[in-house]
Amino acid sequence: GRTQTVSAIITYGMMHSHASSVRKRPAFPKTTKVSGEYADGVYNKNLQQWFGRSNNIRMAQLNGYRGYLYNKSHLLAWSLGGDMQTHNVILGTRAQNVGTNDQRNPGGMAYTETLTRNYLSSHQDDAVAYQVIPIYVGQELVPRGTHVLVQSIDNPIKFHLNVWVFNTQAGITINYNNGSFQ
């Protein structure tokens, strides 16, 4: 029931078809549930869905920000052609998903996504191989981070990324076994 690796070949056309100027990003379907979303989560193999009563997606006071600690974090971003389904989403901290509030160093998954969009926008005839691997320890339900690998197809030397994105949040202690936090 844990989301695994996502791999894709991304073209400018794929990316452009998901641009906010072309199509509004849809909401997550109610069936998009991820491991760690519930502290008391149980995975139903027949329905391929997580259930529970104690939801971990709730407000928290973060460093300089009050909001949700966790996001349903895409492995392949919607803006790069990804979908809104469970197989493409992990439970990611705000910092893991979108980076910090500091515009000088945004980080998170947004870092590689932005670089990839910028590359494809200026090299529309090229494509990139994009792979994201969530890393779990043992049977933990929440990944410790994601390993992002990106490489241009036509000119691998010109554009390539190998980035580790930590699934942590300053000032918060995460129980990676069930997603609970303090």
Rank of each mutant, 00 (worst) to 15 (best):
R94K: 08
I174P: 03
R53S: 04
Y176K: 12
N88Q: 09
N105C: 10
A60R: 13
K33Q: 13
R144D: 11
E140T: 08
S180C: 10
M59Y: 07
P26R: 09
V98K: 10
R104N: 08
Y43T: 12
Q4I: 09
Q61T: 14
T114M: 04
N105S: 11
G107N: 03
N105P: 00
G92F: 00
S35K: 00
Y111E: 15
I57L: 03
D125A: 12
S79D: 07
S73G: 04
V150H: 10
P156C: 05
Q124M: 14
N56F: 01
V142K: 04
P106E: 09
N175I: 05
S17E: 12
S79L: 02
Y43P: 10
W164Y: 07
Q151C: 14
S35R: 00
I90G: 02
A60Y: 05
I157V: 11
S54D: 14
A170E: 14
G108T: 15
N55R: 03
R94D: 05
N71H: 14
Q124A: 06
Y111V: 08
T32E: 03
P143V: 11
T3V: 13
V148P: 00
P26I: 12
P26N: 09
T11M: 12
D125E: 09
T32L: 10
Y130V: 01
A27H: 07
Y68Q: 06
I153L: 13
Q139P: 00
L161Q: 09
V163R: 06
K72V: 00
T173L: 05
G81T: 03
Q96I: 00
A8P: 02
V6L: 04
N46Q: 15
Y65P: 06
L62V: 03
N155A: 10
R117N: 02
V89H: 05
T114K: 14
T86I: 09
A127F: 07
G36Y: 04
L75N: 10
T112Y: 15
G81S: 02
F159G: 04
N167V: 05
S121K: 10
G1S: 10
Y70M: 01
G171Y: 01
H18K: 09
H160P: 04
W78L: 00
A27P: 08
K33F: 05
A19M: 03
N118R: 14
N97K: 07
A27D: 11
M59P: 01
Q49M: 14
I135K: 05
M15A: 07
W78G: 07
L69Y: 07
D40P: 02
T31P: 04
G52A: 12
L75M: 07
N118D: 15
N178I: 08
N178Q: 10
N56H: 03
A77G: 13
H16S: 11
T114Y: 13
N155T: 12
M109L: 15
P143I: 14
R117M: 12
N101E: 15
G107W: 11
R23I: 13
S73C: 15
T11P: 13
M109V: 00
R66T: 12
I9N: 13
N175C: 06
H74N: 06
G108E: 02
N55Y: 06
G1L: 01
E37I: 11
S121D: 05
L91Y: 04
G41E: 01
F159I: 08
V6T: 06
N178A: 02
K30A: 14
N56T: 07
M15F: 13
N167Y: 04
